[in-house]
Amino acid sequence: MTIGRVFAVLFVLGLIGLALINPSTAGLPPCPVHAGLRVYCPGCGSLRSLHSLFRGDIAQAWHYNPLPLCVLPIVLVGLFSDLLGYKSRITEIRPIFIRMLLASIILYGVVRNLPQFNYLTPQRINYLPPPSPDFSPEAGSEFADP
């Protein structure tokens, strides 16, 4: 069993756990990085994001952290090639694209801590409907009888 396959099995187990457990309500302690340093690292919100994805709430997953959704395609390609043992072409990706991905992750970690980009921190979507305008046919609208 190669280390790649061990890793793939661990990752799948973790994903199953995330599908079953809601990290917001599971009583997990707060992330030590955020609790200690008060910074949002690029991975902040990724557990909640993946859990939302399993619930089918892609919008909420995106708002918690878009990074897992962005790297999901390449991770799934690598995961399935390691699990099922077929040869992927992941080693043929041009190095410049991997460097750009790494630079994006680091830049994202910096930018989401700036106050101007506050919306990049993990956000919970409020699904309550917008407040309706004060409208009642009885109380003197154009639909009411004169």
Binding site: G4, F11, S46, T91, L101, I105
Partner: peptide, 14 residues
Amino acid sequence: IQNYLWQSIVVTVL
């Protein structure tokens, strides 16, 4: 030869 790219991305993010 493996490049461990997807594993690296997962450990970096998670």
